[in-house]
Design a protein around this nucleic acid. Sequence first.
DNA 1: ACGCCAGATTACGGAATTGTTAAGAAGCAA
DNA 2: TTGCTTCTTAACAATTCCGTAATCTGGCGT
Lengths: 228, 228
Amino acid sequence: MEVFPGKILIVDDEPDIVEFISYNLKSKGYLIAAAKDGVEAIRKAKDFRPDLILLDIMMPNKDGIETIRELRAMPEFDDTAIIFLTALNDEKYEIEGLKIGADDFISKPIKPELLATRIGSALRRFRKDEEQEQKQTFGDLEINKTKFTVSYKGVDILLAKKEFELLCLLASKPGRVFLRNEILQRVWGTDVIVGDRTIDVHIRKIRQKVGIDLITTVKGVGYKFEMS
Amino acid sequence: MEVFPGKILIVDDEPDIVEFISYNLKSKGYLIAAAKDGVEAIRKAKDFRPDLILLDIMMPNKDGIETIRELRAMPEFDDTAIIFLTALNDEKYEIEGLKIGADDFISKPIKPELLATRIGSALRRFRKDEEQEQKQTFGDLEINKTKFTVSYKGVDILLAKKEFELLCLLASKPGRVFLRNEILQRVWGTDVIVGDRTIDVHIRKIRQKVGIDLITTVKGVGYKFEMS
DNA sequence: ACGCCAGATTACGGAATTGTTAAGAAGCAA
DNA sequence: TTGCTTCTTAACAATTCCGTAATCTGGCGT
């Protein structure tokens, strides 16, 4: 019986609030990480891979709305629940927040029981996919996000992290063309700036390692994943 | 004398009650420890490793609800039965108590026979899981969580505690990648901060002692358990 | 045919990450 | 205390990964 309830990332610029929430959730067995602003939040989220993010709206450096936009743009956070923390009377944000991908919001001041309940139900909504392995299959190709592996006809193919992430992105919408720009933002993030050829090189490595032609080039536009 | 029935930790701030229960249970062969509040309870529980905890709800320093939460958050108490002691008319607590992991509750004033019966059945419910050894086998490798041993092809391998815990965690979900972060939190705990190389060193020792390649490194991500 | 352009390919160096080792600190038992 | 094991750290080695630049290829319009 080693089920642990989940990993939660708390994002707030007020240390007291972080401390308070952190204490409450730790006592319920959650694993906790914290960030003090949007920039840090995205960095830590990549690293920590939380099941749920508690996101304050008002923050320096990068506010909650902007942060959630970027998170939602990255495929790796597709199944991460996000709950907004708002000051009372901030209804205008709440609506906007829900529109762009928040799953719930909680008004400050925070009541522990309410927090626990909301977190529990948000996690439950997302959990069902998460319990079992997250994998996709396309014919003979299998991409397993839980195991970080790709296999073709049962044979494992060893991809590096960036290669794997890139393939995951393309495979998330088979047939759809991803613009180079979009790929950059979603795999590398908004802050990171890399040259244009970088994508090509990674695409090439994937093609080379996998052996078959899964990625089609759409000249002047981008790339798409497609089993021939 | 038959086999000893079990170890029980009594947690109550009123010495009379502790004394009364203690006397009753000792006469039935149980080993008894006592604590006067939640803080002491957790400390003694770690030390004494009771099979069952009798926990008063109303206590100074840290109440029963909070205490049980913390206990249930620790994996080492997964198979410890917990029975609440409540004053009459405290039904609201009873429901909450059961929700967060109590196995039964007994209303004060306490009747000795009732106490013995309830304890007996609570222990019996937990005992059967405990009786059989919790072990996993992967090919020639066997991990025995009750005996704290690992063996390969029948030969015992002596792992240190941290090494064993680390291996257990990885082996709990074969194939799944555990992020370094997650490993740190789940093996070392949330508060403890250790350097990054610490994990590697332990991984190395496991690999060295076991001899075969069970643990695969996923660069930039973490480690996973995998029989080749 | 020529030049142009977007992408393909290749190789290389720096950066980031992990492996390895040894030594000291901390813990524990006798 | 002493002697032992375990844990952690720090330093260095080894490895892998990533981004870039330089060069190549093939399609397209002129």
